[in-house]
Design a protein around this nucleic acid. Structure first.
Lengths: 191, 191
DNA sequence: GCAATAATAGACAACATGGTCTACTTTTAT
DNA sequence: ATAAAAGTAGACCATGTTGTCTATTATTGC
């Protein structure tokens, strides 16, 4: 990816994430990116295409970070708890690369667009599917009973989404710690 | 509340909920409401004030419905399970009054506005606080241990938020059933 | 060195936005 | 019946929106 192009995507993502997509205009983006309007439309043929690029970019950023956090812990239960510790870091501004916490970019974008724009919706869904797949790997490593396995994956994913939403809407920045405590209890029972 | 005023609020809410707030203009609202622009600005001195009115209206609508659903069940564990059955009805379009499911209006609005507009943010937070208080009542009826009590309330609220978000973003309309199964397991353990 | 490519600033078009205002009509209360 | 209040349609304003286009300047690859 070109330098200019990357600068445009980064600036757009930062603004979209902070203020919401509809609230940010092209002119603001090019000002922040320090780029001419023609340059932007040279790389992206519409705002929608730029939005998709920010979703892709954020997905990479987020997945790289999360995968790295989980890999620090041991495969299985430890990694699952590390997931919620990572979330806690994120909510409380201890993760440089993700910017000041303002909820999940993909949930926010879904909330703004719903299922109206198929491509945008798909990008958001795919991001969540990836995370679920990551959780699945770790649950698979110790839970062989298919039914219990599925239930545990669902539980963890629901708690994760709930923690993100609660941190945003209720401004409860401890929600990841709460979720962590819940998961710890569940995993302990499973011994 | 005046007939015209109610019509404006209802139309605005329907449009905002379906398309997102920034995506809907005043002109569209007055057209749908069948009302002159002056009439709208007679009742509300700005779009922001109208947004707040829709939040208040939806809060009443939703809380009335939810309270009624929980009251059908017995105080305590039954009511908590009824909560997730109610969510399942909502997600799958079996609740007339709430319109076609498009996520939680308060989460969506928070996602669009963040903490930028204090009044809007507060209205969203207060709605969630009310629901949490409702859950609290039922947990209080059978769980006297303070720590377990708090943990259970958190669990239920996180699962609820997670189910709503997952139903929207992943288009997983069974998420409330999943959450229900999880809560059932937890409550059974508590015997 | 020089042609091709990519960047620049910014004018411009066409339309949408929130909000105000005028001139007129209907509804309501007494 | 009549005066006050609340409604109507829609012109209008200033600004903001996405997107195009021109004319000029840097940056490339060969």
């Amino acid at each position: 990816m070109n330098d200019k192009k990357r600068s445009i995507v980064e600036s757009a993502l930062n603004l979209f994430y902070k203020k919401g997509i509809h609230a940010v205009g092209i002119n603001e983006i090019i000002t922040v990116a320090g780029v001419a309007k023609k340059t932007l439309y040279n790389h992206f043929k519409s705002k929608d295409e730029l939005i998709l690029a920010t979703l892709k970019y954020r997905d990479q950023l987020f997945m790289d970070w999360l995968t790295q956090q989980l890999n620090k812990a041991e495969l299985g239960k430890d990694a699952l708890l590390a997931l919620f510790e990572a979330l806690d870091d994120w909510f409380n501004g201890r993760v440089q690369g993700l910017g000041e916490f303002k909820g999940c970019y993909f949930i926010n974008t879904s909330a703004e667009y719903g299922h109206f724009n198929r491509q945008i919706y798909s990008a958001c869904k795919e991001h969540k599917d990836k995370i679920k797949a990551l959780v699945q790997v770790h649950v698979d490593s110790f839970e062989e009973n298919a039914q219990k396995n599925a239930l545990l994956v669902d539980t963890i994913c629901l708690l994760k989404e709930g923690a993100i939403t609660t941190a945003l809407v209720q401004r409860n920045l401890a929600s990841a710690q709460n979720a962590n405590a819940i998961v710890e209890n569940i995993l302990r029972f499973k011994r």
